[in-house]
Design a protein around this nucleic acid. Structure first.
Lengths: 234, 234
DNA sequence: TATGTATTGTGATTCATATCACAAAATATT
DNA sequence: AATATTTTGTGATATGAATCACAATACATA
């Protein structure tokens, strides 16, 4: 896997920006940058680190294409907080907070990120209230989601959380009941708060019970109801 | 305990608002409401529910005085997400999101809440960019805090989390090494993700080991270093 | 194609904690 | 003060899941 990244200014591409501003908050700023001089697009390969915990942050990043994982160093091991797919802003909390990235973001598929000049971004927030309202909205949604997830992870037992992960992939990320698992089993473990071995065991178990079908990283949900039951659990 | 609440319009009190706008985001809107007609102050008693999960929300709430717990119904039991003390906005995510409260907020001390008309609040966001920037800042801080907490709670073991809770009370909430625990042991359990029994055992253990001293709900940190060690753990 | 590296599968064992089951305090409420 | 109700203390037991320890693949690159 080649982790070289290259910067390419894609202003022309940004003009006919493929990421249409559906909701104000998740529009690429490119679309709002008439001079097209305040942003640059960077291509990442699967495995590349886009934002690195502990580094000083100078830009706002907007994920135009691809999938990433948000992760941070926990007290004993790496914790994957969430999987995010385009389009989405990355690392907003850092942008506003203390400038030091509090978590890392790594591409788990090839990805395209638009870096936006921070001053330009701030100016935009000021003058475009639609936009800033959209950002607030997105932040709020994230907070609620965080709460929900945290409660689940700590209260449910491992199989319930794994079921949730699978359902989340199918429903929110891939929007299909068949998909290629974008992360390894140890990553799943860090996402779902178990051990790698438990993930392996549980996946085989789900397969044996006819809940899912697996061929390598290809996963198919065979019995969604069972999965939902496991999620609600007992 | 008497849970009757009464509404009292305290416009005069709000004029000489004791909650000075230090940071834009955590200023009571009262201070920015010249006509003083868009807000009302309500007094709550310890134990009162200020915001109820599942209810429709019509106002923005600003906690002027007191302490509250943010909690939500988890899959198996109530989860306390965080303890918050004044001054702070309560339930912003709901305000912007879908209007149905996604979590409850309950007073754990007597508390004073300022309810602000939502349209007024929005208008303010629009016209006062300082203010909206402050709100964004606070939301971002919350998100980071959520991540950190979630990683800790799931990775550390029980005694580490309890140590963290005690340190958090001392450092952030009471700003003193001696304080009155504002919640019961079962609440602590829900905050720290253990069982009530474990909390009881661990507290006695900490006391036996000379890390803390306890007389009823009065807690004194005797050896902060030990507590920090337990937090980092092993 | 070959060789090193990362990922996955599976058993045996250990361990931290939840649960259960009461007793004892402490706090409300009449 | 007297009774009810919530909170707390503590032992015994059960259990989910981590850890350890390898074997077996799969994958990447020389």
């Amino acid at each position: 896997m080649n982790h070289n990244t290259y910067i390419c200014r894609m202003e022309s591409d940004c003009i006919k920006c493929s990421v249409k501003p559906k909701v104000a908050g998740v529009a690429c700023v490119c679309c709002l940058d008439p001079s097209k001089t305040n942003h640059a697009t960077v291509q990442f390969v699967k495995g590349d680190m886009i934002i690195k915990q502990g580094n000083y942050s100078t830009n706002v990043a907007f994920l135009r294409k691809g999938m990433v994982k948000i992760h941070l160093a926990g007290p004993s091991h790496e914790q994957i907080v969430r999987i995010v797919k385009a389009p989405a802003y990355l690392g907003l909390p850092t942008t506003f907070g203390n400038k030091i990235n509090q978590y890392s973001i790594t591409a788990i598929s090839d990805a395209q990120v638009c870096y936006i000049d921070i001053d330009f971004f701030r100016a935009l927030l000021k003058e475009n209230e639609q936009f800033s309202y959209g950002i607030i909205l997105e932040l709020c949604k994230n907070e609620l989601e965080s709460f929900r997830r945290c409660a689940n992870r700590t209260q449910k037992q491992a199989r319930g959380n794994l079921a949730d992960m699978i359902l989340d992939f199918a429903t929110n990320i891939f929007e299909s009941d068949t998909f290629l698992l974008p992360i390894s089993q140890s990553e799943m473990a860090n996402l779902v708060d178990t051990s790698r071995e438990s993930i392996s065991r549980m996946l085989s178990e789900f397969a044996k019970d006819g809940v899912i079908r697996m061929t390598g990283k290809q996963l198919e949900i065979v019995n969604k109801n069972s999965l939902l039951l496991i999620s609600q659990n007992g």
